[in-house]
Design a protein around this nucleic acid. Structure first.
Lengths: 159, 159
DNA sequence: TTGATACTGCACCGATTTAGTACTATATAG
DNA sequence: CTATATAGTACTAAATCGGTGCAGTATCAA
C-alpha cells in the first residue's frame, strides 16, 4: 500500500481547518466539529502533530491548538512521519532494525535491497517535495501571532 | 505507510530470480529454493503475477513460470497493482467506492480531496517511472524463448 | 492408460497493524 | 476552587497482511 492511513488523512483535514482559522488558538472540540474528524481520534492526532512541532498547543481553559508553521513549509513526508512514524520501502530497511535477528533470509546476498534503498530515497524526496499548501491547506486570514477573540468559527468545511 | 508489503517484496525477489534464469521455464519449487521465498507464499504470488501478465505459466510436469516481459518494461506501479490491487492515496478515492454509502462525512465539501487526487496522480506517475530493471532485476543470460535443460540451477541469491 | 508433476482457485487461520475509545494527570483562566 | 482543555497512556475492536492447505485440472512420460 502506498495509501495514507486514515489517521494521516484526518490529520490533513484537521490541519486544513486549522489553517482556515488563521493562527488563532482553536480547541480540539471545535476542530472536530468544524472538520468532521471524530473528536476522540482527533485528540490523539493533535498530540502527534504537537510532538512533531507542526502545531503548538496551549493547555487550560481557552487552550487549544494553532499551526506552528506555514502550510507551505510542511511536507507530506513530514506529516506522514509525524503520524505514522519513520517510513521505509522494504522491511529489511526499517530504521534501527536492519541487523536485527529477525532479518530476512536473504540478508546481504539479496539482489533487491540496494536498489530498493535507492528507490526509497527517491520516493522520500518526492514526498518531501509536496507541501500541505499543495494539498489544499491554505491560511485563509492574514496570519496573526495570537488571537483571543472567537471570531467567526463558521465551519468552512461544513458538516 | 508507503512501504511495499512483504508479498510485493517477495514478488520482486522472485522476479529477480526468474530474470537470472533467462526466460527458461522454472518451477515454483526451484524459484522458492533459489530465491529464498517460502514456497507456499510464492505459489500465491506467482498466481497474481500470472494474472497480471507479468509472467507466463505452463502446467503439467516440466511446467513452471517464465518472465513474460522485459524487466525494463515492468514498472513498480504495475507490480504493486498486481500484488496489492488498485492503489489509492486517500480512502475516499478507492476505485469504485467513491460514492459508496460508507463514504466519509466530509463528502463533497472536503477541501483535501481534490488536491489529494492530484498528488495521487503524481505519485502514480512516479511509480510508473521506476522499472524493475532499476530495482536490480536483470536478465543475466541471452534471452532464449524456451529452454528445457536444467542448466545450472545454482542459487545465485545464495541462501 | 496410469502415475507423477506442477499450476489454479479458493478457503482458512493466526499475527500484525490500524482505528477508535477511555481514563487519569496536569495546566490555565476566572 | 472549579471548569475547561491538553498530555500521556493503556486498552479493545476491526481490518489487513502473512502464511498454509487442499481439491481440481493440465501436461508429460512411462
Amino acid at each position: 500500500m502506498l495509501a495514507l492511513t486514515k489517521k494521516t488523512d484526518y490529520a490533513l483535514v484537521a490541519l486544513a481547518y486549522l489553517a482556515r482559522r488563521g493562527r488563532s488558538v482553536t480547541s480540539s472540540r471545535e476542530i472536530a466539529a468544524g472538520s468532521g474528524v471524530p473528536c476522540a481520534m482527533l485528540t490523539n492526532i493533535l498530540k502527534c502533530l504537537t510532538h512533531a512541532g507542526l502545531v503548538t498547543s496551549e493547555r487550560g481553559s481557552r487552550g487549544g491548538y494553532a499551526l506552528a508553521v506555514e502550510p507551505g513549509d510542511i511536507t507530506l513526508h513530514c506529516l506522514m512521519t509525524a503520524i505514522e512514524g519513520p517510513s521505509h520501502v522494504v522491511r529489511c530497511m526499517i530504521p534501527g532494525q536492519s541487523d536485527a535477528g529477525s532479518a530476512c533470509l536473504l540478508e546481504k546476498s539479496c539482489p533487491v535491497r540496494e536498489p530498493a534503498k535507492n528507490v526509497y530515497n527517491r520516493l522520500r524526496k518526492f514526498l518531501e517535495g509536496i507541501s500541505l499548501a499543495e494539498l489544499g491547506v491554505r491560511v485563509s486570514q492574514p496570519v496573526v501571532t495570537r488571537v483571543d477573540s472567537d471570531q467567526s468559527p463558521a465551519s468552512l468545511v461544513g458538516i
